[in-house]
Simulated assay, not measured.
Amino acid sequence: KELGIDVPFAAFNGGILANPDGSVMARHCVDRRAVDAALSLFARHPVAIWLFADDQWYLTNPDTQYLGKELDALGYGYVQVDDFGPYLDRVDKIVATCADFDLLAQLEKQLSQQIKGQALAARSQNYYLDVTALLANKGDALAELAGHLGVPLAQAAVLGDGGNDVAMFRRAGLSIAMGQADASVKAHADHVTASNREQGVADAIDALILPRAPHTR
């Protein structure tokens, strides 16, 4: 509402496509087999686990380093539960988080092999490992949103900074990586802009997107 968005948008890496009023256009939940595999793997390592379902953010233990960051990003609070059992058949996203970035990278590789063909595992930040449905990826979400708006993918511009943004980099006509992105993410983008702290998005719009946009009188 604050941004005045009047077109459909994607959430959970494309797991949900929603209208501006929040009503759901499409939903892709995580395969139950992948949910069980992810939770089993994460339980054996020192990571915090967050589960998103029913438009809620569920967790069993709020004592985690990045809780405040997620609260600020989401703009709403979590629901503490004893276990995730009641929600496992309708999961929109699972997040494993910790300050051990190397561990999350290892878990990403391991889980990706375990749930191949069932779901996706990708880090959205160094400290977040996301598990989403196969169709919940930013490449397919971009294509679906572009089709709904009547915009050819060749004329679509995207900006991102995480490993889960690479899928949309591959589909868009113009891809721009943020300055804070890892080198492996930047390698897939057409251009690299400044970081979030250096108004990189605004710079990219001014220097890279607007000059390519069609102008009408």
Rank of each mutant, 00 (worst) to 15 (best):
Q114N: 03
G15S: 05
G22R: 04
H45P: 00
S195M: 02
G150L: 13
D206C: 12
I205G: 03
Q113N: 10
L88G: 04
A11M: 15
D165A: 01
L41I: 14
D182C: 09
H148P: 00
D190Y: 11
G77W: 06
G85L: 15
V79A: 14
H191Q: 15
L120G: 03
P152T: 12
A204M: 08
V201G: 09
I94R: 00
D31I: 10
A136Y: 00
R33K: 10
A143K: 13
G139M: 11
A73T: 07
Q180P: 06
L111F: 01
V201W: 06
V158F: 04
A34T: 08
P86Y: 13
L153S: 11
Q56C: 12
A43C: 01
D182S: 12
P8G: 07
A53G: 07
A183P: 01
I16Y: 07
V24Q: 10
D31W: 05
G147R: 13
A99L: 07
V201K: 07
R27W: 06
Q199Y: 12
R123D: 06
D36S: 13
Q180F: 02
A10M: 09
A43P: 00
E2A: 15
A172Y: 13
Q125R: 10
Y87N: 02
A213L: 15
L159W: 01
Q110F: 04
I209D: 01
V30L: 07
E198S: 14
L145Q: 02
T64V: 15
D165E: 11
G147C: 03
F42T: 00
E144W: 04
W50N: 13
A172C: 04
Y58V: 03
Q113R: 14
N164A: 03
A172E: 00
S175C: 15
V151Q: 03
H28G: 04
N61H: 10
G160K: 06
Q125P: 02
W57V: 09
Y76T: 07
L208A: 08
L39K: 03
N137H: 10
N126S: 13
I205V: 10
F42R: 01
L39I: 03
A154N: 08
W50A: 11
H191K: 12
L59W: 14
V158P: 05
D31S: 04
D55S: 11
L41D: 05
